[in-house]
Design a protein around this nucleic acid. Sequence first.
DNA 1: AATTGATTAGACCGATCAGTCTAATATAAT
DNA 2: ATTATATTAGACTGATCGGTCTAATCAATT
Lengths: 191, 191
Amino acid sequence: MSKPHTKIALIEAASRLFRMRGYEGISLNDILKEVNIPKGSLYHYFPNGKEELAVEAIHHTKDIVLAWIEESFEQIGDPVQAVQDHIRQLATLLRDETEPVGFPIGTIAAEKHSTNEPIRSACQAAFEEWRELYSTKFFEAGYSEKLAKDYGVFILATIEGGILLSLTTKSEESLLIIADQIPFILSKREN
Amino acid sequence: MSKPHTKIALIEAASRLFRMRGYEGISLNDILKEVNIPKGSLYHYFPNGKEELAVEAIHHTKDIVLAWIEESFEQIGDPVQAVQDHIRQLATLLRDETEPVGFPIGTIAAEKHSTNEPIRSACQAAFEEWRELYSTKFFEAGYSEKLAKDYGVFILATIEGGILLSLTTKSEESLLIIADQIPFILSKREN
DNA sequence: AATTGATTAGACCGATCAGTCTAATATAAT
DNA sequence: ATTATATTAGACTGATCGGTCTAATCAATT
């Protein structure tokens, strides 16, 4: 029946490569070489070429990160501590060899937000899902709806920026400092 | 004597274009067309080509942003309010037509941190100078040295992430939410 | 005026890009 | 077995990339 193993392999490779070097930094040949597949197959599964593959890769990356955030919240009840733990994990996983985190959606979002609407939209959807997960967890823990939403945005922004700083400085320090600050910052006030 | 007006124009155009579309998203011809200058002039002033121009453009962008942050701190004494004001200004200037802020250093940093050391290093220097300015202002306002440093990192990360979110969602909302949160977050504690 | 170096000018180069095309081959359905 | 469809295969294309090169021209000095 369905053995689109090739398609899945392409999406996974694209997800990983785009995460590390962005959209313009990775060529279709880079991806094909990684999966050892001819160009005909790529255009068979993705008739719209690089853009279509990128959109699916972004969805895939979004799902990976979403499940990974979920995991932190499931293992640690308190959402503040869960976020803190999650950032610390991120710091150590940034340069992981098997499944490097890279800048999950950030590089592509930064590159293409103004020039490729389908990609921008896919990145926006990813950010919104992540933010919504944070917000939901804070709301469930008793934070007001407004505060839960705002904290979601704040956490997401801080993490994205922290990743960028850590990658650029080649050091975990920025993310670890941010993790340390988290409990002082996410207080359960009302406004 | 010295009339490298051409060189300055190249740096300014490169700074603006790289800010908007990143390193790989802008070709040398894009820059030359913008300044209306032949390729020979570019390679006369920048023998090492695109990379060298990019490094100088990053320095230029760094200086612009640095002066602009300074301005906020000079106009508003309280550093917390200065940061808040500065983020709100940023929100409105993001898509400015004459001097668009774009993602000042972020896109290039995200793209090239792992593949081009001179560019990565220039981006790191920019981030560090901005962070140091924030930290200095907080320290001068009576925050402990450690807290001032950590707040500098935190503010910088949050702003970078906030820009990315606002650009991707094509909305000022993320940055404005972050600005609203700032006064609750930057308390003058000791640790 | 002559000389010299700085700058402008843009044609040109090889490499690489995303994407196209045709044919071969594998797989499934009848 | 035959047909039809899905998939593989990779040579090829036109465009564009960063970068090179040589010649023309401008500006300053003598």
